[in-house]
Write a protein that binds this DNA or RNA. Structure first.
Length: 751
DNA sequence: ATGAACGTTTGT
DNA sequence: ACAAACGTTCAT
């Protein structure tokens, strides 16, 4: 191929924003190591799977997470390939590896550049990618283009990425501030009383909550839209010319090792703040953190580690990515923010208990040395700022005026700071917010716009197993083993875990252990950001609650395709548009699906959900229902009729628990269908919830007598069901199965 | 705006 | 030479 340089268009010319060098898979990431799923669109297109082979795309599950420059790439200056492999020192490695500029596309060895004091801005999200010193210095703006070779691009069904709208931005910026507000979806859509959801009936059966009408108005946010950003007027990237800053940037180096790279991705500032059990107060998370957090954090992680942590964080988390951050950095400086302000990360949960903080401190102290050691990497300033700005930006969307909008730039560069908004609003602890229908979380000011998404990389967990013990400075390791730590971590809330993840690399990895994140709850988290999504992927939960979020179809589809182990999925209150992602993605392992109160989900949609993939090609017929393994199905509040029930009874042989409460169209005939001879549901059903189904009458009880496994029948608040009938049912069943009335019209097997 | 198609590049 | 698949263009 070297020969092909001619064929490879853009040899000499490339510097002037010619075509980018195509990238190729790294072959090391988790995705690359996978085998083709055989089920996604692209697989089905492949000849080997019986398709026509026209699409020529790689399996969705195998899309490389960190595409690299092809081996044929050479330095535009010395014409040689990357030489990092021949070197030991990290610093050297960086200088001798090929770096592709995302702005001018030039590929060079940093070492081959003359500009001595120049600084490049490394994109840590994509290997061998930076904004070269020339461009950086020239103040060229970050690529509006997609990051080099970034595959999760527009034509990818599963992609999270959106093409950017280059021109628009600047204009938008200013003008939009005022005008945007209105159309922004600030008002949470109306939702039925929380009690309605999922929990068995409530208290006031009378008013059937029907969340519909205005829901329709609800506008789904685009994946990466963030109007607010535009509002902030920060669209335009401004380069930092601050010499001091540049200097710092110059020191950027790549991670010490791949692992770090991965880890850093992480959590600290950017990590999604998964809901833990702790109450969160601030409005827009960021806000409060600004002040308090910083303090609390200092208290927590403090004295000793302060520095180490800071450094470490930087090295980890923003590692080479100076880019975006850099801007921020300079900003801060200009603003007179002294170095002392190491960098405040947004604390996921400032409520960390004293105990925990103490423990942390102790532990940290012990490992301090080692940390300090490994953190001794060149200091990067960005991170600090990086974390700061966003807050401001967010916090006051509009007042932002005086807040140096340029900071914004940063995100544009791909620093996924939006992560910080994992807890966009004052969400109360899980258990609580459910029961407090009135105060729903304040609408997020607006989701961070992620113009930069293209560069958002979903990193797989590091390939090497996490260390078994904390490394100490003296080369020894800490006495406590990982598994012991894991037990301790097991007691922490997710928010607390996020804090721990910022302590050091090792903790970062430990705390990301799947076992600690089997259930991720984003219920009512109104703004689902790409980074949250990647955070989810990284943790591979078994159970995921996205209820009442405005997740989009694309996001959901993307998620599902990457959560092969997902068993429980809660989507109540989401739009059908989003839920329809289930039609095209397959999740054969799903055991529990909650689609209560999904707007627009009626018979026709149910059919789409349950029907086998439409594009079956000869050769790979999977005529089975995509949700064939669902055992627990929640359909409360849907306008479905017998048509759907017929499908369900045929397609879900394992269905055990069915929630049809608040389904106004459900009647005796529906129950008849479910329990008819020859259906599998007849024997598989153990619990059924028909509460507040006003068309169900006493007659239905007779049908339930044929169910061999039924244990609970909830008919509470069914106007046409009488207590007498229930008692009769109990009496008649007593011969074979003893039932009792647990509550009025709530029949339960007594065993 | 989204998804399909396809020319071309890349690795073997 | 061939299979894989990147990234642009076309079609809807």
């Amino acid at each position: 191929m070297g020969t092909s340089s001619a064929a490879v268009k853009l040899p000499s010319n490339r510097s002037s924003s010619g075509a980018r060098r195509r990238r190729t898979r790294c072959r090391k990431c988790e995705a690359c190591l996978r085998t083709e799923c055989g089920e996604c669109h692209f697989c089905k297109d492949m000849k080997k799977f019986g398709g026509p082979g026209r699409m020529k795309q790689s399996c969705i599950m195998r899309q490389c997470i960190a595409p690299v420059l092809p081996h044929t790439a050479v330095c535009v200056v010395c014409k040689e390939a990357g030489k990092e492999d021949t070197l030991e020192e990290e610093e050297d490695k960086f200088n001798f590896m090929l770096m592709e500029c995302s702005i001018c596309n030039e590929i060079v060895h940093p070492n081959c550049l003359k500009v001595s004091d120049a600084s490049g801005v490394v994109n840590d999200e994509l290997p061998n990618c930076w904004e070269c010193p020339k461009c950086n210095h020239a103040g060229k703006s970050g690529k509006q283009k997609r990051g080099p070779g970034f595959k999760y691009a527009s034509n990818l069904p599963g992609s999270l990425l959106r093409e950017q709208k280059p021109v628009k931005e600047e204009g938008d910026v200013v003008s939009s501030a005022a005008k945007r507000r209105p159309d922004r979806e600030e008002t949470p859509r109306y939702r039925p009383d929380e009690a309605l959801h999922r929990q068995p009936p409530l208290l006031s059966p009378c008013n059937l909550p029907r969340p519909r009408p205005e829901d329709k108005l609800r506008k789904k946010r685009k994946l990466f839209d963030d109007d607010e950003d535009e509002d902030l007027g920060v669209r335009k990237k401004e380069k930092s010319d601050d010499p001091y800053f540049s200097k710092l940037l110059h020191q950027i180096k790549t991670e010490e090792d791949d692992e770090d790279a991965y880890e850093e991705e992480n959590e600290e500032g950017r990590e999604p703040h998964f809901r833990g059990g702790v109450e969160r107060k601030g409005r827009l998370g960021d806000a409060e953190e600004e002040g308090d957090d910083k303090d609390s954090r200092n208290e927590l992680l403090n004295p000793f580690i302060k520095t180490p942590v800071g450094d470490s964080d930087q090295s980890h988390c923003s590692s080479p990515q100076a880019g975006p951050s850099s801007e921020g950095g300079s900003e801060t400086q200009e603003k007179g923010q002294r170095p002392k302000a190491r960098r405040k990360r947004r604390l996921p949960n400032r409520e960390l208990s004293r105990e925990l903080s103490k423990a942390l401190n102790q532990e940290i102290q012990k490992t301090e040395d080692c940390l300090a050691n490994e953190n001794r990497q060149p200091l990067k300033v960005e991170p600090e700022t990086e974390n700061e700005e966003p807050k401001k930006l967010f916090r006051n969307g509009s007042e932002l005026g005086d807040q140096r909008p340029h900071l914004k730039t940063k995100e544009m560069n791909g620093t996924p700071w939006e992560l910080r908004h994992f807890y966009p609003s004052p969400i109360t602890p899980l258990g609580f917010n459910r029961s407090t229908p009135t105060n729903r979380p304040a609408p997020p000011h607006s989701p961070p716009k992620c113009v930069q998404m293209e560069r958002h990389v979903i990193r797989p967990p590091p390939i090497s197993p996490p260390p078994d013990r904390l490394p100490l400075k003296d080369g020894k390791t800490h006495v406590i083993q990982r598994e012991v730590w894991m037990k301790i971590f097991g007691y922490l809330t997710h928010q607390e875990l996020c804090v721990c993840m910022r302590v050091c690399k090792t903790w970062n990895r430990w705390c990301c252990d799947k076992r600690l994140w089997t259930k991720i709850d984003l219920n009512r988290c109104t703004s689902i950001t790409p980074l949250m999504l990647s955070g989810i992927i990284r943790r591979q939960p078994v159970s995921l609650d996205l209820s009442w979020t405005n997740i989009s179809k694309k996001q959901l589809s993307w998620l599902i395709n990457r959560l092969p182990g997902l068993r429980v999925l809660k989507l109540s209150g989401c739009s059908w548009a989003a839920v329809s992602a289930l039609c095209t993605s397959s999740c054969p392992l799903l055991r529990s699906l909650d689609v209560q109160w999904v707007e627009g989900l009626k018979d026709a949609q149910m059919r789409d959900l349950l029907s086998p993939p439409t594009d079956n090609r000869p050769g790979q017929l999977d005529n089975r229902c995509k949700l064939r393994n669902v055992e627990d199905l929640r359909l409360a509040g849907l306008d479905i009729t017998d048509t759907s029930l017929r499908l369900i009874s045929r397609q879900m042989p394992l269905l055990s628990n069915l929630d049809l409460s608040y389904c106004n169209h459900i009647n005796d005939q529906s129950v008849n269908l479910l329990t008819a001879a020859g259906t599998t549901t007849r024997d598989s059903l153990t619990e059924i919830n028909l509460s507040v189904c006003n068309r169900v009458t006493d007659h239905s009880l007779n049908f339930f007598k044929r169910c061999g496994s039924i244990c609970q029948i909830d008919l509470r608040f069914c106007k046409q069901v009488t207590k007498t009938a229930c008692e009769r049912f109990i009496a008649e069943m007593s011969v074979s199965v003893p039932f009792r009335l647990k509550e009025d019209k709530l029949l339960q097997k007594s065993s």
